[in-house]
Simulated scan of single mutants.
Amino acid sequence: MTAPIETTGADARPEAVLEGAGRKEIEGRSLGRIAWTRFKRDKGAMAGGVVVVLLILTAVLSKPIQALLGLDPNAFNQDLVDPVMLAPKGDFGGISWDHPFGVEPQTGRDIFARILEGSWVSLVVAVGSTLLSVVIGVVMGVVAGFYGGWVDSFISRMMDTFLAFPLLLFAISISASLQGEAFGMEGLTLRIAVLIFVIGFFSWPYIGRIVRAQTLSLREREFVEAARSLGARGPFILFRELLPNLIAPILVYATLLIPTNILFEASLSFLGVGIAPPQASWGGMLTQAVDLYEVDPMFMVIPGMAIFVTVLAFNLLGDGLRDALDPRGK
């Protein structure tokens, strides 16, 4: 006969250990809260997000800021330019309290005002073209991946055809041909619309391929089979089952596509087929700075840094979102 095992403390009274368990219930966390916790731990992504928010506010409020400070991006200040050297008077491109970024060579226009004016142009073109490419790419990718068969083959060959286009040359030819007035638009409105169409319409296959690959994987999951077994049809499965699970990769790719489109718009403006002067744009300012670099190096540095900081901020934000929304992340 074995002796009874003596236990003490918590082992003898498990109810004593569990006595306070109900005092504070364990709180569940949603997927959004988990993603936000991961995102906050990434200091680079947080810094990029702050810069992106500031850039958006600057672009939206560029006109009120100019009016408040009494700035005119197209005002010529010949008294601030040396008539012989055609360089800004003073050091570092004429930087002063009244002109914190200095003035342009030859014309004397305030660079700070032109950076503000160019911010909304670059962001409108980049965001508009990104939205256009995302909408087309998501629709085409989801339909191709879900239905498969000849539909998938047709859309895939269409993607290959668009990817075979020399995009830069095609954008130059379209932007150069649509001058003056077209489609009931003219001037700056026409230029912005053409850039959004050219950049967005010919960039959708990149996100379309990503969405198609994700859809091919998701359509075989259990929740899709369960929806089919309950009698759900194709449109319901597409919009209620598949699209919510594609939001994370779509959002990440969109944030990474915006800086690419900013650079593309700057390239077209640099080549003279983007935003036409006297409207300020960051790429157009770089174009003017090429011929005046030896006169005033700051004229090239400032718009170049504006593009660099914007692209870097969006890339950091996109990388942070990708890590935060990864279900396998820790």
Rank of each mutant, 00 (worst) to 15 (best):
L292I: 08
I275R: 07
P244D: 03
G184T: 06
A266F: 03
Y293G: 00
S30G: 05
G187C: 11
N315M: 01
E6K: 08
V151I: 14
G48P: 03
L68C: 06
A176Q: 04
E294A: 13
Q214K: 13
D72Q: 00
V138F: 12
I207D: 00
S267I: 13
L243F: 07
P73L: 06
I210H: 08
S122N: 02
L286P: 05
V127M: 00
V135G: 10
L251E: 06
D160E: 15
L123M: 07
V309Y: 00
V134I: 11
P259Q: 11
R157I: 14
A21L: 14
T287G: 14
L312E: 09
R228Y: 12
F201G: 10
L246E: 09
G44K: 10
K89H: 05
D91W: 09
G318Y: 00
F165D: 01
D326E: 03
R38C: 01
A289G: 11
V52N: 01
L178K: 05
G28K: 12
L31N: 12
I250H: 04
A324V: 03
R13P: 11
L256K: 05
G49S: 11
N245I: 10
G20H: 15
D42G: 04
V51M: 04
V53H: 00
L168F: 09
V252I: 07
P303Y: 06
L242W: 00
R157A: 09
G94Y: 02
G329W: 13
A324I: 04
F39A: 05
R191P: 01
L257T: 15
F201Q: 09
S281M: 00
A171S: 12
Y253K: 14
G184I: 13
F183E: 03
E15N: 09
A289K: 07
R191A: 12
L268M: 09
L325N: 05
N315L: 02
R233C: 08
A67T: 11
W97N: 13
E27L: 14
G200H: 06
L246N: 12
I258A: 01
P100T: 12
A266V: 04
P327D: 03
L54I: 08
E15K: 04
L246T: 10
V143L: 04
L238T: 13
L188P: 07
R322M: 05
P249H: 03
A59E: 00
A47Q: 08
S96P: 10
P64W: 08
V290H: 07
R328Q: 09
S129K: 06
T310I: 01
L195F: 08
L61T: 02
F92V: 11
V60H: 05
V151P: 03
V139E: 02
R191W: 10
S153A: 12
L167W: 10
R38Y: 07
R114G: 02
P259H: 00
A248W: 06
F308T: 15
A193K: 02
R23L: 15
L246P: 10
V309Q: 01
K24H: 13
A113G: 00
A144W: 04
V125H: 06
I5V: 15
I210P: 06
S96D: 08
